[in-house]
């Protein structure tokens, strides 16, 4: 370990130890006991509040939206006049298409970039460090900025696709690409170097080693990352508002049709903004549909990661 960090560690350790020693020599044990119990209670309370708050989101949507749950929700189109018969069909199909596009774009590009950065990119070269920092930064750029990028670069500007579904897919793909790259890198990095050495020592080329040893071993982690990224893409609303999904459409969308498309979260948002309570019930029902899908996907992803975490 390098010297500066070592001294940092020592400094922290001595500071901590000194404070604790001073404290323990000067305070009464009984007070300590009470304070400790109170502190513990506060921690539990905080965690309970956090979990309760997040659970409340789900429960509230379930209670509010329950009356609207039914086959009509999936088969009927939206309506501004007749909320009792309105549904989400075009938006559901729109989201399905959007996500198909995202998967097609993000899986090869994200995994490819991760392989390059982990296996080929020499960290002593400045451009590789730049790419790395750049990916980390992109992961933190607000989603609405990607909406602006989609509007200025994909819908208009250089690509000039217009407000079509593919433009929405591209925008969402760019948005979640850094997440996929970071997760895939973690998974690839977790494969121990001894596996690579073993393969190379047999005379396998670098690509053969990556393709037949590293990638298969990294698959669970990569899948986890891809699922988490896709579930994020399903729920993203803000960038879609800017690239054309905001239009109120009653027909099924197509990939390239230029008369508008819709997406599940955008239609939910649209319903929620209307003052009539019937529309809010619809919005809540839409939220349930979305949450069921997302929570199932995320649970599977987290389970998969924890299942294979201790492999090495």
């Amino acid at each position: 370990m390098a010297d500066p960090t070592e001294t940092e560690r020592v400094r922290l350790a001595t500071a901590g130890a000194r404070a604790v020693t001073l404290e323990s020599l000067s305070s009464q044990p009984r007070g300590d006991l009470f304070k400790g119990a109170l502190f513990y209670a506060l921690l539990i309370l905080a965690l309970a509040v956090a979990l309760a708050g997040l659970a409340a989101i789900i429960i509230q949507a379930a209670v509010k939206g329950a009356p609207a749950i039914g086959p009509d929700l999936f088969t009927n189109g939206p309506s501004t006049l007749n909320p009792s018969e309105a549904g989400f069909r075009p938006a559901l199909i729109g989201t399905l298409y959007l996500i198909l596009g995202v998967i097609v774009l993000v899986v090869p590009l994200g995994i490819g970039a991760a392989i390059y950065l982990e296996e080929y990119g020499d960290r002593s070269r400045w451009w590789n460090r730049l790419i790395e920092l750049n990916v980390q930064n992109l992961a933190g750029v607000p989603s609405i900025i990607y909406g602006i990028l989609g509007l200025a670069f994909i819908v208009r500007g250089p690509l000039d696709l217009g407000f079509i579904l593919v433009a929405g897919s591209l925008t969402l793909a760019l948005l979640v690409l850094p997440t996929v790259i970071l997760a895939a890198r973690e998974a690839i990095r977790a494969v121990p170097p001894s596996i690579r050495e073993g393969s190379l020592a047999l005379g396998a080329t670098q690509w053969q080693t990556i393709r037949r040893q590293v990638l298969p071993a990294a698959v669970p982690g990569v899948i986890t990352g891809v699922i988490l990224a896709i579930s994020r893409a399903i729920g993203e609303t803000a960038p879609l508002l800017l690239v054309g999904a905001a239009t109120f459409v009653t027909f099924n969308p197509t990939f390239l049709g230029d008369n508008g498309y819709s997406a599940l979260p955008v239609l939910i948002f649209n319903y929620a903004q209307r003052p009539q309570d019937e529309f809010r019930v619809l919005a809540a029902a839409g939220v349930i549909v979305m949450l069921v899908v997302l929570l199932a996907m995320n649970s599977f992803a987290v389970w998969l990661r924890n299942r294979y975490e201790q492999q090495w």
Binding site: L51, L54, Q60, I268, L291, S299, W303, N306
Partner: peptide
């Protein structure tokens, strides 16, 4: 148990949280 639950809940879309804020 708790850590994965937190991670899964981190995936709740913000539009859902917004509706929760507005309606509840």
């Amino acid at each position: 148990v708790i850590k994965p639950i937190l991670e899964v809940l981190a995936g709740i879309p913000t539009v859902a949280i917004g509706i929760f804020g507005l309606v509840f």
